[in-house]
């Protein structure tokens, strides 16, 4: 009986090894199963919810929706956003708080999305870009509102 058990274990062991080899052999001969993505040549389309960096939406008249309320600045856990406000004079002669510069530190951002959720006017959103590498860290500090842009009418 000892001999039968011995031969059985050897047989089972060898078949288990051969089964594994059959599987790797299958993948060796079936090149359709290859899952490599040839990244720089073939770029994948990222889903619209993908969080790559914070951008501010501007329409064709170069108007944004940011009122400078600093809700995003308060929501940010890493002090990624710094908002500088100024006072505009409205036609009726009143002073009104408005956005001057929206400074965004990409190097500090963790893409947690809390600023987007906090924004009451949907002024900022997440873009799908992800190739952020640059040679100088200072290039990662961005101003999100375009030069000369102003607040869209009707956004309070």
């Amino acid at each position: 009986m000892f001999l039968v058990d011995y031969i059985k274990t050897v047989y089972n062991g060898v078949t288990s090894l051969l089964k594994g080899m059959r599987m790797t052999g299958y993948y060796f001969t079936h090149h359709k199963e290859i899952i490599t993505q040839q990244y720089p040549d073939v770029k994948q389309v990222l889903p619209e919810r993908f969080r790559g960096e914070v951008v501010m939406t501007h329409d064709e008249k170069n108007e944004h929706r940011c009122t400078g309320c600093t809700a995003c600045e308060l929501a940010c856990p890493n002090a990624t956003i710094k908002i500088v406000t100024k006072f505009d004079i409205t036609p009726d002669g009143k002073k009104k708080k408005a956005l001057d510069t929206f400074v965004y530190h990409l190097e500090l951002c963790t893409m947690c999305n809390l600023c987007i959720v906090a924004c009451p006017t949907d002024a900022i959103k997440m873009a799908q870009s992800f190739e952020h590498s640059v040679y100088d860290r200072s290039l990662l500090t961005k101003v999100l509102n375009k030069p000369g842009s102003k607040l869209m009418e009707g956004v309070e």
Binding site: T24, G25, Y27, F28, H31, E33, I34, I35, T36, Q38
Partner: peptide, 10 residues
């Protein structure tokens, strides 16, 4: 190449 094809890579 052999390792790549067995590991479903290029």
């Amino acid at each position: 190449k052999v390792s790549a094809y067995m590991q479903i890579r290029l």
